[in-house]
Structure formats: C-alpha cells, structure tokens
Design a protein around this nucleic acid. Structure first.
Length: 273
DNA sequence: ACCCAGGAAATTC
DNA sequence: GAATTTCATGGG
C-alpha cells in the first residue's frame, strides 16, 4: 500500500476519474464507505482509496513509481496552474472551486485516441460499456476478468463483423481504420508528441471519423498536449455562458481549464446551465 | 414516438 | 460558406 499526496494537495480520485476524461474506472466502494476506485491502465489493474488528504494505492512501490505517479500527473503543480487560469479568466472562479482535485490523466496514446473516436455523438455511460466490451473481447487478460486495452495490432487483425458485438454503431469502422493505420506504421501516435500542434492535429484528422474535436481529445488525453481545448456540445453551451473566453490565451493551461469547465457544466455548476 | 448523446462527412442551398 | 442530413445505438 502506497500512501501519497501531491505537494499541491490537490488530488481527488472521484473528481479525476468521473470528470469524463477516462472511461475505464469504476467506483467500487459502497456509499458511505471510504471511496475506492478500480481500473486498468498500461496493462496494470489498480484499486485506490481516497483517504483524508491523501490517496492510498494498492500496488507495489515500483508500480507506483513507474506507472501511477505519472498516470495521475502527480508531479505537476496544479496550484500554480489554477492560479494562472484564475488570473487569465477571472469569471472561472466558481468553476475552479467546484472540483479542485481534478488532475489531467496521462493516458495511453492509443487508448485515448480510440476511446474518443468512440465518444462521438454518444453518451458517457454507453461509451464506458463499449470500451468495456472492447477490452474484454480483444484485450489481454492480465488477471481473471480483467483486461488490458487491446493494441492496434490486435484490432487490425479484426474484420468489421468482429466488432459488431461491441454495439459501437457506425464508429466501429473508424476504430478498424485507425487500428490498421497504427499497426502498419502509417500513423505514429508517439511522434505526435513532438510535432507542432497543427501538424499533429492534421495527422489525426487525416483518418476517417476524426474531426477537430476527436483529434483534440486524443492529443489532450492521450498525448498530454495540454494546449488543446476540445469543444463538444457541452463546451459550446459553456462558452455561451462565458463570453469572451479565449482558450488560446490560456496557453498550456487550456486543456485543464477545459476539464474544469466541462465537469462544472455537466453538473449544473455553471450559471444558467 | 421523439430527442439527445464529449461528431464527422457528405450533401444542399 | 453556412445549414441540413445521415451514420448506429441506447436511454430518458
């Protein structure tokens, strides 16, 4: 058991894992009991428990150091980032106060890309179901009943009909096309980390079913390109309530600001929403 | 039955 | 170019 609290003191499992950036985590504690979450990332399963002022990770020290510390972005200074956002956009004061323990997960690039490919014109509970079936059907079984996210090579070996049980609808063909390009090397997600943003975005948008929003989500959540500010139907509403907000003015804090705003408006914490 | 969901792409005006 | 339609599926 590893007990950890980031230096900035800002880390909530619930706020981080239920704010819509990931689709593979489930709350496993009974109401009233200490809040516990369980999920899989980078081929490792984890149960973590929210304690007072810290989070307890049920894993080895090696796993914590090599996987979870980075996954939960625990080395970053969120207090400083929040101060910069508040200074740049004073009208976000209430939004920032709603879920101060959100951290931007550093998810696997391929998983981030595929899950947000599946997200289009869909709702979060259903996305979670599709992703769960995708992993159970094609992911490596890392322990009984638990599956890693399937690699591009595995998915590229599928026929479209193989994906029918996922009930992903028209999005299945997009996943298949992405898998084929990633497996062949025509698409190199890791290379997008170092490309200029516009070039990285264009490389993703060259694939079928990938527009500006999905590309920005893949870049933000899978590659930690935090200058991305994905705009979906919720954010369009939010932006009408936050006139004058210019994401470009937030620089590398744009992605985090977007996450605070998205979570707030979905929970009715934005005036008029 | 109707509308919407972390959209994108083709079509139409 | 800006609106409209279609795409597949499930829940409210």
């Amino acid at each position: 058991m590893i007990r950890f609290s980031p230096a900035d003191g800002l880390f909530s499992l619930r706020e981080t894992l239920s704010c819509g950036q990931s689709f593979r985590w489930r709350r496993v504690s009974a109401p009233g009991a200490p809040e516990a979450w369980h999920g899989v990332a980078f081929g490792h399963a984890l149960t973590a428990v929210q304690a007072e002022g810290a989070v307890e990770f049920d894993c080895t020290e090696t796993e914590f150091r090599e996987i979870w510390f980075d996954y939960f972005d625990l080395g970053a200074d969120y207090a400083a980032a929040r101060a910069r956002i508040a200074a740049a956009v004073p009208q976000l004061r209430d939004v920032l106060a709603f879920a101060p323990g959100i951290r931007l997960l550093r998810q696997e690039p391929w998983e981030g890309f595929v899950t947000f490919l599946l997200s289009q014109c869909n709702n979060i509970p259903r996305i979670e179901g599709i992703v769960e079936r995708l992993c159970a059907a094609f992911g490596e079984e890392i322990s009984p009943g638990e599956y890693a996210f399937p690699g591009a090579e595995r998915l590229a070996s599928c026929e479209l009909s193989d994906l029918a049980p996922l009930h992903a609808g028209y999005r299945a063909q997009y996943v298949l096309a992405a898998a084929q390009r990633a497996a062949s090397g025509a698409l190199d997600l890791e290379a997008l980390r170092d490309l200029p943003l516009e070039a990285a975005r264009a490389a993703l948008m060259a694939l079928p079913g990938v527009g500006r929003k999905v590309a920005d989500c893949a870049l933000l959540y899978g590659l930690h390109r935090t200058e991305c500010f994905p705009v979906d139907v919720w954010m369009k509403r939010a932006l009408t309530l936050l006139p004058g907000l210019d994401p470009a003015r937030l620089g590398a804090d744009a992605g985090l600001a977007q996450q605070y705003i998205f979570h707030a408006i979905r929970n009715g914490r934005l005036a008029g929403a």
